[in-house]
Simulated scan of single mutants.
Amino acid sequence: MKMSAHILLLVLLSFTSSLTYAFDPSPLQDICVADLDSHVFVNGHVCKDPKLAKANDFFFKGLDKPGNTMNKVGSNVTQVTVAQIAGLNTLGISLVRIDFAPNGQNPPHTHPRATEILTVIEGTLFVGFVTSNQNNNRLISKVLHKGDVFVFPIGLIHFQVNIGHSNAVAIAGLSSQNPGVITIANAVFGSKPPISDDILAKAFQVDKKVIDHLQAQF
């Protein structure tokens, strides 16, 4: 009986340990500047020789510049991921600036590889995320003002909307060097090739003409 209990404990510990490393792995060296020109495919990026690292590998300029919000959704996301700072490779962190026109929104989306922590720099935002089916798809939302901070858990659908009368700006940190983004409307209605309108009409419980109209927007 004791032996069975010990085996069960070891299994549980190994399972918990594997969960700990489910996201960006911890670095095994001081630096691993991404070789963005390498044609070798690995989980992340191949490292340059550390002796060739330079200050610009860890530097990005221009996050003070407003993004262009003249688009359909009225927002712009300026990314600072491993694609912009090669020195972020293996460090498990990145950053974005989000600009909002009045009434602009960062539409419902997910980051498959990162939790996001957002700080409002200017303006007033209405933000929220939706829990999984397991937790009844509960909407957790709040109005944020300058200096407020809000967290969006990894993988959950979330959004931000500028409810003020002037432009708004937020800065967000993400727990991955390459968090990825899946914008829900784009993915569902703008996939290539498109998802069958029969499937989407049944999923959304609407007429196929509605689906055809939505797909035409993307």
Results as ranks from 00 to 15, higher is better:
Thr110Val: 13
Pro112Ala: 07
Arg113Lys: 11
Arg113Glu: 01
Arg113Ala: 04
Leu118His: 03
Leu118Ser: 02
Leu118Ile: 04
Glu122Ser: 10
Leu125Ser: 03
Phe126Val: 06
Phe126Gln: 08
Val127Ala: 15
Phe129Val: 05
Phe129His: 04
Thr131Ile: 12
Gln134Gly: 06
Asn135Pro: 02
Asn135Arg: 14
Arg138His: 14
Arg138Ala: 12
Ile140Ala: 12
Ser141His: 10
Ser141Trp: 07
Ser141Pro: 11
Lys142Trp: 07
Lys142Leu: 10
Val143Ser: 11
Val143Ile: 15
His145Tyr: 15
Gly147Val: 14
Val149Cys: 13
Phe150Thr: 02
Phe150Gly: 00
Phe152Ser: 00
Phe152Val: 00
Pro153Thr: 10
Pro153Ile: 12
Ile154Ala: 12
Gly155Asp: 13
Gly155Arg: 09
Gly155Pro: 08
Leu156Lys: 13
Ile157Ala: 14
Ile157Thr: 15
Ile157Cys: 13
His158Phe: 13
His158Trp: 05
Phe159Gln: 07
Val161Ala: 13
Asn162Arg: 05
Asn162Thr: 14
Ile163Asn: 03
Ile163Tyr: 08
Gly164Asp: 07
Gly164Leu: 10
Ser166Phe: 09
Ala168Val: 07
Ala168Met: 06
Ala168Lys: 01
Val169His: 02
Ala170Ile: 01
Ala170Ser: 09
Ala172Ser: 08
Ala172Pro: 00
Ala172Arg: 00
Gly173Ile: 04
Leu174Lys: 03
Ser175Trp: 06
Ser175Lys: 14
Ser176Gln: 06
Ser176His: 03
Asn178Tyr: 04
Asn178Met: 07
Asn178Asp: 12
Asn178Glu: 14
Val181Trp: 05
Ile182Val: 13
Ile182Phe: 14
Ile182Lys: 03
Ala185Lys: 09
Ala185Cys: 06
Asn186Arg: 08
Ala187Gln: 10
Ala187Asn: 11
Val188Asp: 00
Phe189Ala: 05
Ser191Glu: 05
Ser191Asn: 07
Ser191Leu: 05
Ser191Pro: 00
Lys192Ile: 07
Pro193Gln: 08
Pro194Arg: 05
Ile195Asp: 01
Ser196Leu: 09
Ser196Gly: 05
Ile199Gly: 01
Leu200Ile: 01
Ala203Arg: 10
Ala203Gly: 03
Gln205Lys: 11
Gln205Asp: 05
Val206Leu: 03
